[in-house]
Structures are given as C-alpha cells and as structure tokens.
Amino acid sequence: MPVTYEEFADSRLSALLRYATMLTGDPHSAEDLVQETMVKVQLNWKRVQRSDSPDGYVRRMLTNQFIELRRGSWWRRVLLRAEPDPSVPVPSDHADRSAERDRVWSMLSGLPRRQRAALVLRYYEDLPDQEIADVLGCAVGTVRSSISRALATLRTELVEAR
C-alpha cells in the first residue's frame, strides 16, 4: 500500500520540524521552511511517493530549500519577521556551560548553509557520511571537508570568544 500524503504528514511532520529548527536556528523560520517544503511535497506527491524513500526525498527537498533559499519566498518572510530567540531558562549551576552552548548555537548561524546542513545531518540526525552526501547532492569527500571546515571555524571562534 503506497503511503498517502496524510499518513506521511502524520508520521513525519514533527521530525521534519525538529530538523528544520536545527537548520534554521529559530522556530519561526523552521515553520516557514517546513510549510513551504510540505506544500511542494503535496504538489508533487506522486513523485515523492514513487521514490525509494519518501522520507529521504522530502529531507532532500527541505535541505535544498534551506540552502537555495535566496530565491524562495520564506527567506523574505524570515527577514521581515526576524525576532530574537525566546531565552531559555538556564539552571544556574550549569550557567557557564550553557552560555557556551548558546554561543555555539548562535555561531552556527554564521556558517555557510551547506556547512550548517552537513553539521546538523551528522551531529543531530546521526546520518552516515554517505547519506549526508546523498542529501546534499555531493561527494562524500566534500561532506567531510565541509564538516571539518565548519568545525574549524567554530573552534576558532570559540577560542576568540573566550
């Protein structure tokens, strides 16, 4: 039985939203990104359905949308709406560590989008490099080099921030 769009949305929407939140770094952008992608998914549901893995196909669509979004409409919306992240209450005994983690979070937004996507796919989605390469449409070597470049950038910035 081929999966319907409704079933797909029921089972996958929350995971997609989490992934989009990690990519964009804020809930509003994540919502917009997922919404835009899911409308496209619906428009092209037959093709999505026919693919080997609808799940992977949609993740690829969403990632591409994120990377190429200069032309897409949600980027404009994001710019118009850009609001500071609501601050998350922090337990005081871990305050220093948490502050550092937040610094990493905000540094992520300074990375090129492809690099950020690669980081999210490896360290959040836990995908093997080959699958990351499939999502990003590039060679495994490219994935590795962009991840190590991104890590180097973060490391340098963290040192400078201290």
């Binding site: 949305a9 929407l13 929350s14 939203l17 989490r18 939140t21 990690m22 770094g25 804020d26 809930p27 509003h28 994540a30 919502e31 997922v34 919404q35 899911m38 409308v39 619906q42 992240d85 609501p86 998350v88 948490s98 550092e100 983690r101 937040d102 990493v104 979070w105 992520l108 980081l119 999210v120 360290y123 959040y124 890590l151 973060l154």
Partner: peptide
C-alpha cells in the same frame, strides 16, 4: 563535536508544535 551534539539536543525544545503547522500547511 560534543558541544555541537549537546547544543542541538538542548535546542530541541524550540521546535514548533506540529498541530498549528499542519493547519498552516
């Protein structure tokens, strides 16, 4: 790398709720 994993995990709670997004879609 550890910090990255922790950072991602820590920000999971920023994920928007599914229901309203579903309606908007």
């Amino acid at each position: 790398e550890e910090e990255l994993r922790a950072t991602f995990e820590r920000h999971e709670d920023q994920t928007p709720a599914t229901g309203p997004v579903r309606d908007k879609i």
